[in-house]
Amino acid sequence: MHLAGQFVRRILQGVVVVLITTFLIFSILRIVPGDPVRLIVGGMAPDNLVEEIAQKMGLRDPIPVQFGRYLSQVVQGDLGNSYQRPKNGMMGQGGDFNANMDVEMAEVSDLILERLPYTLQLAGLALLISLIISFPLGISAGLKPKGFISKIAFFISSVFVSIPNFWLGIVLALFITIKLGLLPSIGYQNFAYTILPAIVLAVETCPFIIRTISVSFAEISQEYFIKSGKVRGLTRNGVIYRHTLRNASIPLLNLLGIQLSTLLGGVIVVEYIFDYPGLGQLTIYAVLQRDFPLIQGIAMVTSALYVGLNIAVDLITYSIDPRLES
């Protein structure tokens, strides 16, 4: 009924957002200097050959025309092929003239699907760690804003906020992997390789989550329907679990929806530092190699993820608080 209508509307809005993002990325890639064809054919190739190939690839057409062509491909489920990555996984060397013109190029969707699970695993673990740290701290700080735990929570948040993620990544890798040999960190062989990068990401998101939880808990605790629970004859814990937590989770869910973008930004840096084979690392190489289809595909997938998550957050908050649904 109404919720379904709302849902359809949000999805349509989401599609528009994804399209706009993709178009922006698409245009910027083509406006800023740096010709992918030069990288494809190699530094030694003559200029007229570069021009010829660029024309053949359609890169000299007006941007809207190119974008239209790209979209018509995308709606058929085809994100295109990478400019640089061959199907067999071997990378051509930039200097070899025409080295990879006759090799079959990997499909962008395959590249993304192959990397996405690693990134999701990393982000999921990071989120889990930060929730495990933030929940007890945030809740106790929110329930007793002047208490001892509140001070600890504030201290931890301040420290975490001021640690740069690349620095922490390097220090952890040096200390825990190399000095102590406790956890592996560079590359990926098994799940253990996710832990250190996840900790770095968690440290980055923790302060926001702690703050949101403690502020919304403190606010909700002041509501009359919470304060009067005692005189209605409900138990203190019952009120906290069933009412304070539930109401306070709405701002938290909204924050998580928004925090995803911060998390994605962090993922790029952290994956690069730890040489972790996720989407972030793929992005960096794609940008360095000016691999247009790959960059576009990643942009589209991540913005779709972002939009989808926010729709999910909204639907969940609506189902918690029916008043929001308007």
Binding site: F225, H243, N247
Partner: peptide, 8 residues
């Protein structure tokens, strides 16, 4: 009017 949780 404010005595009950608006979400239940």
């Amino acid at each position: 009017i404010n005595s009950l949780d608006p979400t239940y």
